[in-house]
Simulated scan of single mutants.
Amino acid sequence: MRLNKFLAACGVASRRKAEELIKQGKVFINGNMVTDLSYTVDPKKDEVVVEGKKVSLPEKVYYLFYKPKGFLTSLYDPHHRETIKVFLEKLPQRVFPVGRLDKHSEGLLLLTNDGDLANLLLHPKYAVERRYLVWVTPKLNEKKINQMLKEGVNIEGKVVKPVVFRLIKTEGKNYVYEVCVKEGIKREVRKMVAYLEGKVHRLLRVQFGPLVLENLKPGEIRPLSKAELQKLFRFVSQLKTSKTLAKASSGEDT
């Protein structure tokens, strides 16, 4: 791992500021000053000291979070809108969300400090499925839904197809649809509903890859269980070894 990346992962500073510390001669590895920005650290063997303090990689942690409606999936907003940072501040470790949900959407987010796992889950070539419940009016045209399932719809210049798009129940005046997508295009589900001439009243993510929302309540955060961790790591391992990688678009915000 490159030294600046290692220092950033340890929470010392951003990569750019870490480079400044290295140049200033404030970083020692195994007792020797290191000013080479390309230096590679072995986290298991090397002792790294910054400004007289030994630093090491934090333990990797994984949480499930129910993002409530009305919060940005961000740790900072220049316009001072409410973000999920207020919920994450309660945790003992610094974590970040894997992917995004837009301000008016709610539901499941994975929180972690494991950057490698996050990058893999979000990489377009792995096409990790996201599953939603969507409250819509009026009832959508079934013929047009079936056509979209077969032929796809053009979103941001790319033809994409939902894996699932089906009516599961009615709730008051709303029609509730189950939608599963894997492209990760920004506001993908909302754009599909708009294409079908519907209006979204509520959008809830209930599953991301092997992880499911289950009985979490808005604003709640909990660590993954041992069984969930095993399922997640097994899923990631299968992605890495898969010989047939689906093609998809980058981005997110649904």
Rank of each mutant, 00 (worst) to 15 (best):
K144G: 04
T73W: 03
E171I: 02
R222V: 00
R202V: 03
F208P: 02
G70Q: 04
A127F: 10
K53F: 03
R2K: 08
V159Y: 11
V27L: 02
L122V: 05
F208Y: 12
K69Q: 14
V55C: 06
Y62D: 08
Y195T: 06
P218C: 02
R15V: 00
V55F: 02
V160C: 13
R187T: 02
Y62E: 08
G198L: 09
K17P: 01
K69M: 13
M148R: 05
E156N: 13
R234L: 07
R234K: 13
M33K: 15
V179G: 09
I155H: 06
P223V: 00
K240Q: 14
L196W: 03
V41E: 02
L245W: 08
H79T: 06
N215V: 01
K173H: 12
E129F: 10
N4R: 06
E151T: 00
L120G: 13
L149V: 00
N215L: 10
T83Y: 07
S242W: 03
P78M: 05
S250C: 04
K60T: 08
L109A: 13
K90S: 15
E178W: 06
A227T: 02
L57A: 04
P68A: 06
V212D: 13
M33C: 09
N154R: 14
L133H: 11
L75A: 01
M1H: 03
P218K: 08
V160P: 04
L122C: 06
L167P: 00
N174C: 09
E20D: 11
Y175F: 15
L88A: 09
L140I: 00
W135G: 11
L57F: 04
L3Q: 04
Y63E: 01
H201W: 13
R202F: 03
G172V: 06
R15W: 01
R94S: 03
E156V: 00
N174V: 01
V163S: 12
E197Y: 06
K231S: 11
G184F: 09
G157Q: 11
K85N: 14
Y63A: 03
F235C: 07
R234Q: 09
G99C: 07
L239K: 08
E51H: 00
K199Q: 13
E171Y: 02
T35H: 10
V34G: 14
S225R: 12
F28R: 15
R234P: 00
E51R: 03
L204C: 08
R222L: 05
F233H: 12
N174W: 07
N30G: 07
K5C: 01
E142W: 04
G107W: 09
V163D: 14
G209D: 10
A118Q: 09
E171D: 15
I84L: 09
E106K: 14
K144I: 02
A18D: 01
V34P: 02
D42C: 07
D102H: 08
R205S: 11
V206H: 06
M1R: 05
